[in-house]
């Protein structure tokens, strides 16, 4: 039987990549045609080729790479701080019920505060420097991630923990040797997903208070209704996201060969 259209069948990786790329190219083709044929006003939706030209302009004349680098750095700094805090705290929350019971209501409360609503406060606290941006990104990810981590740790089968205990492992040893190892795959998945959220908040932070970064590039282009530049900026974010995600997936496969 043809595996392409079998329910839960598994076509080859090459076919999968080709189909993914094919769909994206087809979409770009339709878009190009729609713009070239004048169906949509160019200030509203410029054609892909014009976006590409604008992107080239940004790259050569407006330090696009530098802005992209600044944005990426901000995302990673905030993300790493959030992760470095969320992973141990989340594991402790699930391992010691009292820690979970103490922290969870507060975390849940903050988690539901929309980050944009906290922008003014953040500017009052930290001014408009890097601290504000890092703080907003951290705010948007830490509180989500910590609950995800706690859930991952909670889902580690209790049998694993008990086995390690009867083999003489202390609570601490069981935490690092068993709980942390067993939750590895879901943890890395959740980190990958949370990193994506970081980008959402980054653009917000850079639009509001920045003179660098992709959000700043997009927002200043908008002021002069340079739609192709705006779109080029968006496309760059998409590409960075796509590449990061693929790298993290490859990392996941290497790290967890046993899956």
């Amino acid at each position: 039987m043809n595996p392409l259209f079998t329910f839960r069948g598994k076509p080859s990786t090459t076919v999968e990549i080709l189909c993914g790329a094919g769909f994206a190219l087809a979409l770009i083709g339709v878009w190009e045609a729609a713009s070239d044929l004048g169906w949509i006003a160019p200030t509203f939706l410029p054609s892909p080729s014009r976006v590409a030209v604008a992107g080239w302009g940004l790259l050569t004349k407006q330090h696009l790479l530098w802005h992209a680098g600044v944005s990426t750095l901000r995302v990673w700094v905030a993300f790493l701080i959030a992760a470095a805090m969320a992973v141990p705290i989340g594991i402790l929350m699930s391992s010691y019920r009292i820690v979970g019971a103490s922290l969870e209501p507060t975390i849940d409360f903050i988690r539901y505060l929309p980050v944009p609503a906290l922008v003014p406060l953040s500017i009052i606290w930290f001014g408009i420097g890097e601290e504000t941006k890092i703080f907003l990104l951290w705010l948007g990810t830490f509180f989500q991630l910590v609950l995800l981590v706690a859930d991952d740790a909670r889902r580690v089968p209790h049998e694993y923990v008990e086995i390690a205990r009867t083999l003489g492992g202390s609570s601490r040893a069981v935490l690092t040797d068993v709980v942390f190892r067993a939750m590895g795959p879901t943890l890395v998945d959740n980190l990958r997903i949370t990193l994506g959220w970081c980008w959402t908040y980054l653009i917000l932070a850079e639009i509001i208070a920045a003179d660098s970064g992709l959000g700043y590039v997009i927002w200043s282009a908008r002021r002069f209704v340079k739609t192709p530049e705006v779109m080029a900026g968006v496309v760059v974010i998409g590409i960075i996201g796509l590449v990061t995600d693929q790298i993290l997936r490859a990392f996941h496969r290497r790290l967890f060969r046993y899956l």
Partner: peptide, 16 residues
Amino acid sequence: DRRRGMVFQSYSSFPW
């Protein structure tokens, strides 16, 4: 502790 070892029906070996 190590003197008394358990073998469970499921989840008996570590998959990683």
